[in-house]
Design a protein around this nucleic acid. Sequence first.
RNA 1: GCACUCUUAGCUCAGUUGGUUAGAGCGUCCCAUUCACAUUGGGAAGGUCGGAGGUUCGAAUCCUCCAGAGUGCACCA
Length: 743
Amino acid sequence: MSDIPKKEPSYPVPDALLKPYNPAEVEDRLYAEWEKSGYFNPDICEQKGVIDPTLPYFSIVLPPPNVTGVLHMGSAFMLAIEDAMVRFARMQGRKTLWIPGTDHAAIATQAKVEKLISKEEKKNRHDLGREEFLKRVEQFAKESHDVIVKQIRKTGCSIDWSREAFTLDEKRSLAVKTAFKRMYDDGIIYRGYRIVNWDPKGQTTISDDEIVYQTEKTKLYTFRYAKDFPIAIATTRPETKIGDTAVAVHPDDARYKKYVGKEYDIDFAGVHLHIKIVADSAVNPEFGTGAVGVTPAHSMTDWDIAQRHHLPLVPIIDERARMMESAGSLHGKKVAEVRISVVEWLAKETLIEKEEEIEHNIATAERTGGIIEPMPRLQWFVNVNAKFKNQSEKLAGIKKGEEVTLKELMLAVVKNGQTKILPDRFEKVYFHWIENLRDWCISRQIWYGHQIPVWYKENKMHCDISAPKEDGWVQDEDTLDTWFSSGLWTFSTLGWPEETADLKQFHPTTILETGYDILFFWIARMILMSTYLLGDIPFKTVYLHGLVRDKDGNKISKSLGNNLDPLEIISQYGADAMRMSLLVGTGPGNDSRISNEKLKAYKHFANKIWNVARFLVGTTLSTDTDLALLEPADRETYNTFSEFKKDITSDFENYRLYLAAEKIYQYLWHTLADILIEEKKPILSGEDSPAKKSAQVLLQRIFTDSLKLLHPFMPFITEEIWSLIQSKDTVEKRLLMTERWPE
RNA sequence: GCACUCUUAGCUCAGUUGGUUAGAGCGUCCCAUUCACAUUGGGAAGGUCGGAGGUUCGAAUCCUCCAGAGUGCACCA
C-alpha cells in the first residue's frame, strides 16, 4: 500500500490507482486473464455455474475477415459492436457463444499474392505451378491470419478461440463438399454453357455481384453494317459487331416494322455476317436509332434476346480479350486495337452517320480492375429458379412439401419476419435484389479455394465428397466462389454436416452483425444456404453497420492516404477509447466518424472513471452496501438510478447500443461525478453519521453497477477497476465479465 | 431511370411511440481551481429543426411537393 497520497485517505488506495490510467499496462494482461479463465467458452461458463439455464442462448458468428491483409477501422468497428453485444448477453447469464474465424477470400487473396510474386520475382502463377503457388498463398494467408488474430485480441473481443474456424480448413471443406453434392443431386447446381462475366485480367469468371461499374466517357458510333443495309445501329463497341447475328427493334416501332423477319448477308470489315431482323421488347426505341446490333456471345442482354429468337452464337473474343479465328484477318489482335481498325474501316467505307461522346458505365472486376468481357463458357451455376419440394417445417410462410425455388425461400423468411434486418429499410433493398437475381455462377478459374468436387472420365461426370476409387477420373480444375463457403458459415462453424451438440444448441444464431456493403454477397447467400440445406434460417436478426469515415466524412482507405491502423490507435488511446469512439452515436446502418478529438475525449473519459474510482476507494468503497441504510433523499436518487439501469437494459435488448453507450457516458461523468459526488463530498469528509453511511452506500452501489453497465463498451478499464476495488479478503477473485447484469 | 438515406447550434451529431422550455460533444467567451482529476469544475452566448403546404389539441418527428447532398440497383445497344 502506498504511503504517498496527497492526502491521507480513509481507506488504503491501491498503488495502481494513484497514477493516471494507462491502458498499455492493463490491456494485454487482462486479456490474458480473461482467456485463462475460460469464460469466452460457453461450456466453461456452464461448468462454472455462471449461466442462468432458464434464459435463451445467444450465439453469433464473427464475419470472418479476409486473409488478404490486416484489419482496418471497419473491422474494429464491427468488433466493438459485436463484443458489446456478446458481453451484455454473457452478463445477463445467457449461454453465449461468439465464434471466430477467417475467410480464405479466394480471388482477393490469390490476386494479392500474384501481385506480390510478380513484383518481387517477376513471375506469374503458371511459372510456379499450381502446387508451389498454393504453398505461397497458404504461407501468406497464415501470416495475415496471425496478425488478424492478434488484432482481434487487442480489441478486447471475448470470443471463443477454442472454436476458431477457417473457410478453407478441413471441417469447412467437408461442409462445402457436402453442400455442393446435395445441391448437385437435387438439380439445384448444374453445369451449363452460358454467358458469364469473364475477367481477362484475373483469368476467371466472376459473379454479377463482383462487378463494379465505372463511369467513363466514350464514343457512341451510329453506322450501318453496309451501304445497302436498311437500318442504322448505334454502339460503343464497334469491334464486337463482328459477332452480330441479328438486329433487334422494338415490336411497336413503326419505322422498322417492315423489316422484321428479313435476313441479310453482309461483308463487314472483311468478315461475313448473316443478320436477321427481330422484334424484341427489350429494345428501347428512344435510344440511338432504336435498333440494336445483337451480339449474342458478348453481351448479357443480347444473349437473352438471342435465346428468345433462337439466334446463332458467334464468339469472337477469347479469354485474353483478343479476337478469335472467327474474326478473320483480325484474329489475334487485342480488342482495343480492333475497335480502332473497325472504326477506320467504317470511316473509309463512309458508313458512319454519327459520332458522339457519351457517359457510359463500364463493367470492371472488383478485385483485379480488369474490364469484364461477357462471353459464353461452360461453368457451374446455382439455379435460383428451380422448383424443389421444401422438406422443412421451420420456415415461416412455407409448408412442408410445398414446391418452392431458392428465390422464394430467400424472400419468404424475411417477408414473414422470421429474419429481421436492422435498419429495416435494408429489407427493401434485399427484396429488390432477389427479385432481379439471376443464376449464381459459382465456378472460378483460380487455384486458391475449394476445388469443385466433381470428377470426369471420358464422357462421364461424377460428383461426390471424395474422388472415385477407380483410376482415370480427373477432378474439375475450377474452384468455388468464396461466397459459397462463407454462405455456410453460421452452421459450418458449428460442425455441420455432423449433427453436433453445438449445432443443436446454437443454431439459428441469434444475430448476424456485419457491414451493409455485403448484404447481397454474404447475408443473402447465408439465407439461401441455410434455408435450403438446414431448412432453417441462419439468424434471427441482422444488424447492419455502416462505414467508418474520417473527421471530414471521407471513406477511410489506403488510396486516400487517411488510413488508420487500429493497433496504432489502441496504443495511443487504448482499446476502450477506440471502441467508445466508434460506437457512441452510430446507429445501425449509419456510418461512424472517427477523429482524434473523439478518441481523445474518450481517453479522457477513461481517466475520469479512473479518478472516480480513486476517490471512491478512499472514501466509500469497502463499506456496507445495505440499501436499508439509505436516507430518503438518497433512496430517491437510487430509485432514479434503477430506472436508468432499466433504460440501458432496454437499449441493449433493442440493439440501440449507440444510445446506451452515450447515456452511460453522460451518467458517469455528468451525474455521478459532477453532481452526486460533489454533493456528497462535505458529508464524506465529515464525522461518521447516518447521512455519511447513506452517502457511502449510495455512491458505492451506483458506481459498481455503473462499471457493469459500462463493461460491454469499455471492458478493460472496468475490469481493472473492478479488480482493484474488490476487498482483499475475498477468497476467490471474481471477474467483472461474468458478473450478473444489474437489474 | 427506379429506390433509399440525409439536411437540427460555428463544427460533428443525438433526439426511441407525435407530448413540458429541442439536447450533447468539440469550439468560442466569462469565472473558479493547494480540490479524486497531467485529461478539473461552474456558467454564458449560439437554433424560424433545408423550403413550402397539409394532418393533429399538439409536428424536428406523420403526409405531399420542392431544393441540395449522398448511397444502392438497373440501363448503358
